[in-house]
């Protein structure tokens, strides 16, 4: 029907069909942008959470005092206001509190994890707990 010998020029149906295809393509592109930006957001949040945990665990491994300080910070779930007096480097922790919605610290005997809400789901990054 599309290419029959007798028809010359498009019929309205053919034209509408091609327009439909274009519309589908546009929708595809939009969908891709949406999904891709969501993935980007999640990746960024996960990277921040991992960095935060890594930096805190590394500092906790330095000494007993640091370990206690890190534990105190993790359980307080706030960014201390007098950072200049604090010997811990809490840059990433404060960034995480600011950027990850509803950030919670969950710690058990086997896991230390950061949990936050993003795009309607609970995301989690886990590491070995502080001994």
């Amino acid at each position: 029907m599309l290419n029959s010998i007798h028809s010359q020029g498009f019929t309205l149906l053919e034209l509408l069909l091609s327009l439909l295809l274009t519309a589908l393509m546009v929708m595809g592109v939009t969908q891709y942008l949406l999904v891709s930006s969501r993935i980007q957001l999640i990746m960024q949040q996960e990277a921040l959470a991992s960095r935060t945990l890594e930096s805190l665990l590394l500092q906790a491994s330095f000494s007993q005092q640091k370990k206690a300080a890190v534990k105190a910070v993790l359980s307080s779930n706030t960014c201390p206001s007098n950072l200049s007096n604090n010997s811990l480097d809490l840059t990433h922790w404060c960034q995480a509190l600011h950027q990850l919605p509803q950030l919670k610290v969950k710690s058990s005997n086997t896991l230390l994890s950061l949990e936050w809400q993003s795009l309607g789901r609970t995301r989690r990054v886990s590491r070995q707990p502080i001994p």
Binding site: T22, A23, M25, V26, T30, Y32, L33
Partner: peptide, 13 residues
Amino acid sequence: LLLTASSQALIGL
């Protein structure tokens, strides 16, 4: 309409 929309989408992309 579709041409505008698709070019917008492509520019966005």
